[in-house]
Every structure is written in C-alpha cells, then in structure tokens.
C-alpha cells in the first residue's frame, strides 16, 4: 500500500519540529534552512501552512532532469534524487510547479522530500498531527468522516 503525507494546515502551530526532524534525518544537524518540508506563516491571516513535495505521479522534476538523477522508489512512490548523478543544473527546480525541489549550495546538488524511505520523520515529530502519513487512496478519509459525522441524527449522538 502506498502512503502519502497528508497536511492539515488548520492543525499547524508553526513550531517547526518537523523542519528540525527533517533536517536532522537528512543532514545530521537541526537546521530548518535545510528542511525539505517548510512551514509558512501568514501573519495577518493568523495561519501556519506546512508545504512539501506531493510526489506527483507524472513528476515534472523527474522528466526535466537531463541526467536521470531523479528516480522513483517503487516501494514508497517517492521521487528520489541520486546525489552522485545530479549535476546541480537546477532545471528540476524550474520544472516543479510547486517549488518543492531546491538547490543546496553546500552539497551542490538539489534536495527534495524522499519520504525518509517510507517512515517520514516530519510526521512523527508533529505534535498536533497536522502532518500524517496515510493510505494514498484515502487521504480524504478523516475529512469525509468529519463531514459524515455532521449528518448523524442528533438523538443518536
């Protein structure tokens, strides 16, 4: 069963535990600037929104790569960057419509979410379940359930 990261912005508090967990897994230090998942603060609106790669089926980044450095992990469905092959041309960063592939000036290759090989650290670190790792076919399950609950007869509640 494939799983996907499910993001529910209304639950996010902006604590950045996910960014620390992501960067520690990838870089061995707590470094939000190197996190593959980013939290955006919308100050006037009073909202926090996590954003990361959604692992497109027809991935623009993968098709754009001239050296085939981005490959599909068949087990997780993640589009993964092979650091040794990447030449740092950044074409994938232009191709991605969502901006979730980014260049890392220290490693001189691009970086993106690889779902941590099927056990994403961001989801484990999130204290409010704003980020969860769920069945890809049913990412709407909890929302469906919440709406279904609204239709329960009151006297049976």
């Amino acid at each position: 069963m494939l799983r996907s990261l499910q993001i529910e912005p209304e639950k996010c508090t902006g604590c950045l535990q996910c960014e620390m967990a992501c960067s520690y897994q990838a870089e061995g230090v707590f470094n939000p600037s190197k996190s593959r998942i980013k939290i955006f603060t919308f100050h006037d609106e009073g909202r926090f929104v996590p954003y990361t790669c959604t692992q497109c089926t027809e991935a623009w980044c993968l098709h754009a790569c001239p050296v085939e450095a981005i490959v599909i992990n068949e087990a997780t469905g993640a589009k993964e960057v092979i650091d040794d092959i990447c030449v740092g041309c950044k074409v994938c960063t232009i191709a991605c419509p969502f901006g979730t592939v980014n260049y890392n000036q220290e490693t001189a290759v691009v970086q993106k979410c690889d779902l941590c090989g099927g056990d994403p650290e961001c989801a484990k670190a999130c204290p409010t379940q704003a980020i969860t790792y769920v069945d890809s076919d049913h990412s709407g399950l909890e929302r469906m359930r919440a709406h279904a609950a609204q239709n329960l007869p009151q006297d049976n509640a």
Partner: peptide, 19 residues
C-alpha cells in the same frame, strides 16, 4: 482569538493570535 500558535520548537503552543 483566531488560533493558538507556537514559538520555535514548542509543543505546548500557548500563543494567542487575535484580531
């Protein structure tokens, strides 16, 4: 109150965000 918020790294999230 619009929502609560957190400082960096905080799993309590006591901040008030208001209008």
């Amino acid at each position: 109150l619009t929502t609560n918020g957190a400082c960096f790294g905080c799993t309590i999230a006591c901040q008030r965000i208001s209008t």
